[in-house]
Amino acid sequence: MSEISVRLLDEENWSEYRDVRLRALRESPEAFVASAEEEDDYPEERWRDRMRRSRRLVAEADGSAKGVASLGSYAADPAMGELFGLWVEPASRGAGVARKLLEAAAAQARADERKHLVYWVGTDNGRAVAFASSFGFRPTDSRRPMRIHGVDDAEDAEELAMVLPLGNTSGLPTSL
């Protein structure tokens, strides 16, 4: 794979985001609350609205999208950003795409004057927890039930909030 670059998409790039988002939903349906079938029928205005609500980052190499991540505001605390919707195509996993997306998301969160970045990770996804930890995210005591698309018996599934301090802030927030 050639060099990985990450681009911040704007509203006019809604169709690029839609295409990579639908790829992610089709390839990893268990990783998302939504389904490709559901989102495939969204009209252009709904995609544009999504672009206005959160920042969308796309990782590219060899002329095509290799991964995507979203960065939004964290509802409980405006000083915090939230990373969500992180996905890397299977053929590019382990090649540094996720790291590049996290670096870009953290840089954007700092530019947006966020103090911390929150990333919810499935407690049973050891690989994701280890990856986030290697980047500097730290686990918190905050947990929430996790809905898994297409899995009816996922009652016990939960996510934990991992937090990355940004800039000159020390420690983790006291509550999420």
Rank of each mutant, 00 (worst) to 15 (best):
D19T: 10
L164Y: 01
W14G: 04
G167K: 00
D124R: 15
R127N: 06
P145M: 10
E44W: 05
F84V: 02
S54W: 01
I4Y: 03
D112W: 13
Y119A: 09
R46L: 07
P29A: 11
G122H: 05
S73A: 14
V121N: 03
A24N: 02
G96P: 00
F135Y: 14
R93T: 02
V121G: 04
K66Q: 15
D153R: 11
D10P: 03
A61E: 12
A109T: 08
E45F: 06
M80Y: 07
S5N: 11
W120V: 05
E16P: 01
E11P: 05
R53Y: 12
F135H: 13
A130C: 11
P29G: 13
F84D: 03
R93L: 05
E3G: 14
E159P: 00
F137T: 01
V88A: 02
D10E: 06
N13Q: 12
Y74H: 09
A79M: 12
L172I: 12
A36G: 04
D153E: 14
G72P: 08
V163R: 00
S2P: 02
S2R: 12
R7E: 12
R23E: 14
A107D: 04
Y74R: 07
R7Q: 15
G81H: 01
T174L: 11
L86H: 08
L83Q: 01
I4C: 06
D49Q: 09
L83P: 03
V97F: 01
I148F: 07
V88D: 07
R138L: 15
G96I: 10
Q108T: 14
D153H: 13
V163K: 00
D152P: 15
R99M: 04
P165R: 00
L8N: 06
L102Y: 08
A34E: 07
E103T: 07
K115I: 11
V88N: 03
P43E: 04
L101P: 02
F135C: 13
S28C: 13
R147H: 14
V121W: 05
V163F: 01
E60Q: 05
E27H: 15
G171H: 09
R127Q: 07
A154T: 08
P165H: 04
E3V: 14
L117Y: 00
E113G: 13
G81V: 06
S15H: 10
L164W: 02
G150N: 05
E45V: 15
Y42K: 05
E27L: 11
G96A: 09
E82M: 13
V121K: 03
F137S: 06
L164S: 02
L25K: 01
A24Y: 02
P43G: 00
W120T: 05
N125T: 14
S134C: 06
G63D: 12
A95D: 10
Y42I: 02
P173F: 00
T140N: 08
S70C: 13
G67L: 00
A76G: 09
E3Y: 14
V121P: 00
D49Y: 02
G126H: 11
Y119G: 11
L83I: 00
T123Y: 08
G122V: 02
Y119E: 11
G72H: 10
